[in-house]
Design a protein around this nucleic acid. Structure first.
Lengths: 357, 357
DNA sequence: TTGTAAGCGTTATCAA
DNA sequence: TTGATAACGCTTACAA
């Protein structure tokens, strides 16, 4: 019944007994056609199981009906959810999603954008290491391919769907101060390749100053250290006077909780921890995570919506930042006055390698 | 410097002062050309910033160099990781990834596959509600578009990258028996739309019988109930004699842990819980989750590899199931002999609505 | 070794 | 209201 290769509009025209232009007009509702002709064409198309060939269309119309999406990694649920948001927003729009991952690599970002352009994407949605310095992205703009970023704070006139990282991070400093913390830290992963992380640190740093806290200690760790609680513990123990830690994302914050158990510390009694992102799992922890709650899905949706508007000729407009909220959780409390540094060091279990401080 | 619209092979030929066939042969390394001609063409291409137009190529060569991927949702990290695996395997192969999400909807599955085919994908990687009953998928096979499934146990001669759900689930029953549990349960989400979940139940059920356990209680819950610990708690309390619960995925297992806290039960003392999937976060819990550890990323990679092989004409071959392992964790222990049903019911906090048992 | 030209499936122009 | 026909960018016989 169904042919191995799909019918073309030529076949439809032949079966309907008309020219291909007529068939095209009927099938696209793009021009005049008698009722009888309409009927014949529709029928032929249906009988043949006809569907348009996207390549032919793209070649002629110079529109691929495809949108390119570049994110660092889908293994990070924050980005995965954002892409899911993009998907939902694109659903029913007729646009397909071409996806690409950079693994947080600047060069890969560039080649990915280039590849997307070679594939004639009609628009681009991206989260990159450094969109402001990407020549590939420049090129896209020059070719009038609309670009919509996700997660990045506004830069260089590039439109972006984001939460105000600076402001959100400042809120954390404010809370730390309100609880009476004096010495606090900022735990960062991939600080060099994430403007989000840097902006969070900036906002945190600034508000610490404004709230009269000591300058926050910046603790940068590797992915490997984040994954091994005992290694993270060995790092944390180097900062005995820090009573509250702001982790640049929730996974890191959860890793900290796990690490503190190795040290025999209690969260939040011995160390307060606040995360960023608001991933679902944080709620389900025995001690629910205190965090800045954002909606990656909403960012994806907004980025997609902006792009769709641009594609309809409505112009590409920057929208205000998306809202975030401070999720109370149970990992932030006042510092424990009884605990001294010596107490905590003494609690270090023998499984942790000796450290030279 | 860069033109607003990209150069075509015609432009390259003109600048190089040769025919387009020659330019094509040089640029594709697909035929003879003198060293001098090569040089001139390469140079022209470089100067013009030439790159191939995928649509033109696809139209002529009947290959889009694009692979379609359909998953239920990217909000589920298991699928997101699988897609990430597909991505990594495709990297450098020249194939791009067109992605689509069904939201666990059977009809959406069909239209998504159809849309992918309209976009001329050269191959399909999918996880669906019911691949064996999908007419769209049939059509793909008829058109000789190779299809590679992920997560599904083998069905209907469709090639799939999977773990043996039946065998893995049986292992859980065996462990339950070894710990001396007598009455156990299977907690399922989306039982009707997931063959994986059903196969896990089947394997679990079968091994319970073989190990002399009572027939496991099947507890189906809604997504909403899974998300609200107090609602889940209200359900769990209806099964006071169940001492060990096998959850059809890790999220559910973690939700159970959270729910038990509402009831004042201890895991694993009052209730053992085992999950499935082995998501990273399970390790970081205060009581690390006991679970069947799988690698969604590996499934994505294998599915992609199989497809790439097929696309190279090496044939589409079913490979053996991917390995899984039983992650010990700390949420499985022997049933507490002292605890009686009454004890547990008595521990119910007043915040949980009264239940008629 | 090179170039001409046909054709892939569409859409759009223009004459009938 | 219709239908030839010329693109769109590319690959590939086939000739030269």
């Amino acid at each position: 019944m169904h042919p191995v290769t799909s019918a073309t509009i030529k076949d439809v025209a032949r079966v309907a007994g008309c020219g291909i232009a007529t068939a095209s007009r009927v099938l696209n509702n793009s021009g005049p056609a008698s009722a009888e002709m309409r009927e014949r064409v529709q029928r032929a198309a249906h009988d043949l199981g006809f569907s348009f060939n996207a390549a032919g269309r793209a070649l002629q119309s110079r529109k691929s009906m495809t949108i390119g999406c570049l994110v660092p990694s889908l293994a990070n649920p924050v980005f995965a959810e954002a892409v899911q948001g993009v998907q939902s927003e694109l659903l029913g729009s007729g646009y397909q999603l071409l996806i690409s991952c950079s693994n947080y690599d600047d060069d890969a970002d560039g080649t990915a954008i280039t590849t997307l352009m070679e594939n004639n994407v009609d628009g681009i949605i991206a989260t990159m290491v450094a969109p402001d310095r990407s020549s590939a992205l420049m090129q896209a703009k020059q070719r009038d391919i609309p670009v919509s970023l996700m997660f990045h704070d506004p830069i260089d006139g590039l439109v972006t769907a984001y939460v105000d990282n600076f402001v959100a991070a400042a809120e954390v400093a404010r809370r730390f101060a309100a609880f009476g913390h004096k010495r606090v830290g900022f735990l960062a992963l991939r600080f060099s390749t994430s403007d989000r992380s840097r902006n969070r640190y900036a906002g945190f740093h600034e508000q610490c100053r404004a709230s009269g806290l000591a300058q926050p200690t910046l603790i940068e760790i590797s992915e490997d250290e984040a994954r091994h609680p005992e290694r993270l513990a060995a790092i944390l123990i180097n900062y005995p006077d820090v009573t509250a830690l702001f982790a640049s994302n929730d996974f890191l914050a959860i890793a900290v909780q796990k690490a503190t158990r190795h040290l025999g510390w209690q969260v939040p009694q011995d160390l307060s921890v606040v995360g960023f992102d608001g991933i679902e799992i944080g709620r389900l922890l025995e001690t629910p995570l205190t965090t800045i709650e954002t909606s990656p899905e909403a960012m994806g949706r907004q980025a997609a919506r902006s792009l769709l508007n641009a594609l309809q000729g409505l112009g590409l407009k920057q929208r205000p930042p998306l809202p975030f909220s401070f999720r109370e959780g149970e990992t932030l409390a006042a510092p424990n006055p009884k605990r001294t540094d010596d107490d905590r060091v003494a609690a270090q279990p023998s499984s942790v390698p000796p450290l030279k401080i």
